[in-house]
Nucleic acid binder design. Structure first.
Lengths: 201, 201
DNA sequence: GGCCACCCGTGACATTTGTCCCGGGCCCGG
DNA sequence: CCGGGCCCGGGACAAATGTCACGGGTGGCC
C-alpha cells in the first residue's frame, strides 16, 4: 500500500484527486493539506511514501517544502504537480530533490502511474519540459534583483518598492534597470512577466 | 439520467471531474471539451441537460459561450465553475443567463448537488460572492477603456497599444488616464490589476 | 433643439521611469 | 594583493507616462 500525502490549495481539485487516487487499490491517502506550512508537520506525523505537492500554495511554496521534506524524510519521494510548466520551476524542483514533475494539463491516468514509478525510484519528467528547462539556462537574476522585481509585481512605484525592500529609491531603479537588461525586456512590467514566465520570480 | 457537458481546459481537472461525476448514478457525461469554441457545437450535437463551464478557456470565454448556449438551447441549464470568484464574473454570468456559479475552492461534494439543484430550476450562488458582486457595483469602464486596458496587460508601451487598437498614441493615453481615474489607482499596472480583480477586463 | 455620454484627437506640462556613469564597501578566488 | 562579483547609493539626462484643457464628431434621450 502506497501512503500518499496530497498538498493542493484548490478544494475541488484536491477533493477530486483524493477521491480518484483513493480508488486505486494500492494507494492510500494518509493526509490532505491546503497550505504549504502544513506539509512538513503533516508528513512527519503521517509518514507518507510519496508527497504530491502543488507549487503555488498559501504559506510556503511547495518547492520550499519539498527541499525540507527531502532533508528530514529521505525515504519520502516528492512528486511536484503544477499548473505551470515553467522551466525555472522544474529546475528548482530538481534542485530541491523532487523525483518527478507533472503539469496539470496532462491526462489523469498519468498520475497514478507516475506515483508508482516515483516510488520505484524512477524519475518522471515531461521530456519537452526538460528540454525547455535546459535551453532556458539558469536564473541570471541576482538575489536583490529578484526581491525588487517581486516587489514590483502589482504596479508599485519606485518609492513603494524602496519602502518594501528597505532600500534607497535610486538603488531600486538601478536593480530594476539591471533586471530589465538581463531579461531583455523594455520595462518593469515586461521584466516581471518574463521572470515569472521562466519561474525566476 | 442527467446529461452533462463538461468544459474545462486543465486536462487533469477535467479528467478528475469527469470520473468523479461519472460515479454518480444519476449523472452521465455526454461531452468533454477543453476549448471554448467547441462548447456550442458539442452541446448542439449531444443535447446535454446541464453545461458545466469554466470561464477562462482557450478560444471563447465560457461566459460568451454561456450566452450563446442559453439563446440556442433554452432547455440546457448553465453552471459556471471557475477558479476566481470575481464580482464582475458573477455579474456577467448572471447576465448571460447562467443558473449557477461555483468557485473551485469549495468541496467537491457541492458539485453534484449543485448540478441537481440547477436542473430543478434553482439558482446556485455563493451568498458571500453575491454580496461582493452587489457591493462592487457595475463595470464603470467604457468599451474603449476596456480595450486599451486589455491591450496594456503585459507591459506594452503606449505605441504598442496604439498599434494594437488602431488609435492615436495620444488617445490611448487619455483612455488610460480615464481608466486609472475610474479604478482609483495610480498607474497602468494597478489599473489593469484592479480591473482584472473585479472581472472587468 | 439641447443635453449628455461616448468616441477621437492635439498640445502642453509635471512626474516617473529607465539608463549611464560615478563612487564606496564586502567577500571570494586566483 | 588584485581582480571581479555582488551589494548600496548618488547625480544627470532622455524617454515614457500621467494629467489637464481643449477641440470636434456621433448618437440617444428628453
Amino acid at each position: 500500500m502506497i501512503k500518499l500525502l496530497l498538498a493542493e490549495d484548490q478544494g475541488m481539485m484536491r477533493g477530486a484527486l483524493a477521491l480518484l487516487l483513493g480508488l486505486e487499490e494500492d494507494i492510500e491517502i494518509v493526509a490532505q493539506v491546503g497550505d504549504g506550512d502544513e506539509i512538513v508537520p503533516k508528513a512527519l506525523e503521517t509518514q507518507p511514501d510519496v508527497a504530491l505537492l502543488d507549487i503555488e500554495l498559501p504559506g510556503r511554496s511547495g518547492l520550499d517544502a519539498a527541499a525540507d521534506l527531502r532533508a528530514r524524510m529521505p525515504g519520502c519521494q516528492v512528486l511536484i504537480l503544477t499548473t505551470f510548466g515553467r522551466p525555472g520551476y522544474l529546475r528548482r524542483a530538481m534542485e530541491a530533490g523532487a523525483a518527478g514533475f507533472l503539469v496539470k494539463d496532462g491526462p489523469v491516468e498519468d498520475l497514478a502511474a507516475a506515483i508508482r514509478r516515483v516510488l520505484a525510484g524512477e524519475r518522471v519528467i515531461d521530456p519537452a519540459l526538460a528540454a525547455a528547462a535546459l535551453s532556458a539556462g539558469p536564473n541570471p537574476l541576482t538575489q536583490r534583483e529578484r526581491d525588487v522585481l517581486a516587489a514590483a509585481v502589482d504596479g508599485a512605484t519606485v518609492a513603494d518598492i524602496a519602502a518594501k525592500v528597505h532600500l534607497s529609491p535610486a538603488t531600486v531603479r538601478n536593480y530594476l534597470s539591471a533586471a530589465i537588461g538581463k531579461t531583455q525586456t523594455r520595462n518593469r512590467m515586461e521584466a516581471v512577466r518574463a521572470a515569472r514566465q521562466n519561474g525566476w520570480l
